[in-house]
Each structure stands twice: as C-alpha cells, then as structure tokens.
C-alpha cells in the first residue's frame, strides 16, 4: 500500500517514513504543500497523511485542491490542533480521518489501513483469494489456515494483486506499490518477487498477462 506523508517536522517525517515502512506501507515523504502537490500529480496513492500547518500553506488548502480536482484519495489529517471545531472543519473539508498529535504509530497505521480499505470499497480488513488470507494489520498471510512465510516485498506485491483480484496489475504499478522514491529498484525486481511468490503459493496462483502485467488466476485453472 503506497502512502504519501506530508509533514514539515523533520523528526516526525523521518519517524513516519520509517515507522509506517515497518508497518508494511510503502512511504513517500515530503515536507511541504508544493512537493505534496507534485507527488499527488505524479503518483496514485492509497492514502495521504497530511499535516495541517505546513511552511508554505495549510494542509486544508491542499486537501481542498485534491477534492476540487475530483481526487478521492483517502486523506488522514495530522495536527496538533485537535479541538472539536478543528476536527469538524477538517472532516468537512473532505478528510477521511483525523489524528491529533502526539499519536500512536500503531493506531495511525490502523486508521490508514481503514481509510485505504474504505477508499478501495472493501468492508473487511482481510484480503482473501482461493484460501489465501492476508492480514494487512499484522502483515501475516495464511493458506487454508497454515501460516505462510512472506518477505515484506512479497507481501506488498501479493496485497497489490489481491486488492483487485480480477484486474491485471501492471509491472510499473507493482513497482510503485513496492518501492518508494528514494529506493533503488532493480529492473527485474518485480519478476523476482513474483517468482518467489509462485514458489510459495504454487505456479498457477499468479498469471502473467503478456505485455500488460500480472493478475490472480481463477480457481481450478
């Protein structure tokens, strides 16, 4: 799940980038509205963590621009001003959730998963396909009740595929879901992860759609 964090405090920004990374998110971190705007234009995110007080404007403004541009990316507002009127203003401006500083990293991650899930139109926290169950909260996977050992990247790739089971996910989209901007990506990284997943789940679990990307195979195929 790819997340954009817009926060001007370097300590908190670094903490969020690393912390949310540990929770299984792929994180892009920017420190002001302008960079946030550029990031949103360049990339589709599953959720945005947006600070309200930014050096070059208010997070509210960025949120409003997004909503005016019919961008429905789930947004979680992050602010030190967590009085009721401000929370109401934030939610009315189009935010999906609101977290007051200081917060708990686990709670923030859970709320992010929740708004991302709602954004994707799903009601349950778990992803399921042909007996394979992914729990994005605990980053665990099982097959018919038996735990699967997956690396972080493998988990992220599988999640990207299982979030839209019938759709074909391009190699570029998988790369985006797996790696943030700052990370070096080997040209065959996605193939390697798919290869490992097939080794663990069976060759027929993920289908290669030549020239387009990958998708999950229907049962019994």
């Amino acid at each position: 799940m790819r997340i954009l964090v817009v926060e001007d405090d370097p300590l908190l920004l670094d903490g969020l980038a690393v912390g949310l990374g540990l929770k299984g998110f792929t994180v892009d971190a920017v420190a002001n509205c302008e960079d946030g705007r550029a990031a949103v234009r360049a990339q589709r995110y599953d959720g945005i963590v947006l600070d309200v007080m930014l050096p070059d404007g208010s997070g509210f403004d960025l949120l409003k621009e997004l909503r005016d541009a019919k961008d429905g990316t789930p947004v979680l507002l992050l602010t030190a001003r967590d009085q009721v009127p401000e929370r109401i203003a934030g939610l009315d401006a189009g935010a999906d959730d609101y977290v007051g500083k200081p917060f708990d990293l686990d709670e923030l991650a859970a709320r992010l998963r929740a708004i991302a899930r709602r954004g994707a139109g799903r009601a349950t926290a778990h992803l399921e396909w042909r007996g394979v169950v992914l729990d994005p909260a605990s980053l665990t996977a099982t097959r018919d009740g038996v735990p699967l050992k997956l690396t972080r990247r493998e988990f992220a790739a599988l999640r990207a595929l299982m979030e839209r089971p019938a759709a074909t996910v391009s190699k570029a989209a998988l790369e985006e879901a797996l790696y943030g901007w700052q990370e070096e990506v080997e040209s065959n990284a996605v193939e390697v992860h798919i290869h490992h997943l097939r080794a663990k789940l069976g060759q027929d679990f993920i289908k290669t759609v030549r020239g387009l990307g990958y998708r999950l195979a229907e049962g019994g195929a």
Partner: peptide, 12 residues
C-alpha cells in the same frame, strides 16, 4: 509536533 516525532521515533 516534536512530541509526536519523539513518540513515533521511540515506537520505531
């Protein structure tokens, strides 16, 4: 804000 940063880093 710095308190949030400290807490997040501590949890990391």
């Amino acid at each position: 804000t710095p308190l949030a940063g400290l807490k997040t880093q501590a949890q990391v």
